[in-house]
Amino acid sequence: MAKRVLAVLAVAAVAAAGASVPAGAEEQWPAPGYQSVQPQPGNPLPELVSGYWFRTVEVRALQDDDFENPGFLWVERGAELWNTKAGEAGKSCADCHGAAEESMKGVGASYPKWNAELGKPVNLEMRINLCRERNQKAEPWKWESDELLAMTTYVKYQSRGMPMKIDISGPMQEWWERGKEAYYKRRGQLGMSCAHCHETYWGHKLRADTLSQGHINGFPTYRLKWQKIGSLHRRFRGCEEDIRANSSPYGDDEYLALEVYLSWRGEGLPIETPSVRQ
């Protein structure tokens, strides 16, 4: 008799536990209360949804709290570097640009930008290294080094909440076309393009993961899998490896073109740097 009572209690306990599973545990799309942005004319997506809304409640909570968000370790490091004198010129970023909160507001949201001197677009990482070489007379930082990641994150963070918007007029048009071509190009042993996952099947499950629309408004992003912050080009390389394609080096022209195209594709989405993704 006593045993039966215990068994009944155990069932009751399981039922109670089932009822209290947090909403995010199922990780379903659409996420309740998700927000979206109307796309530009010509954009194939019906609505623009940040990758944030495809993540679990727990991951979103981590991003929302500026203390718990580990990406802020890089924001803080970036703030230190901003005020550190470097190179032969012995100048810090702050010596020319003043307070980043003022001078860099909105800057990160408008890159990549056309650079007439180089005759190609530059993204934020490249722009920072150009400044180091030309104005500080310092060695450029290596791609994916902690310093370059920290500075990129810090500058981009100054645009947090502001809509992404880049200028694709003039010579940028050609790079936009090139990026679009790269987006729809089948690649690797699996013969997949970006569009297969991020345009056709966003919101669907890929194993345990929910496919996002592949927007870039959260980069550099703290990825739990990486256990650190990483650049957009690192994500591109990871995506290519996932579909068994040969990845390109950081800063490659095709990645740059793709960055131009994706910035247009997600135009209007708020910058979330430093975002947290799984």
């Binding site: 370790l73 803080e76 490091r77 902690d146 920290a150 650190k228």
Partner: peptide, 9 residues
């Protein structure tokens, strides 16, 4: 970060 450890509380 790999190089140095900084606490936040």
């Amino acid at each position: 970060m790999a190089t140095e450890s900084r606490p936040r509380v």
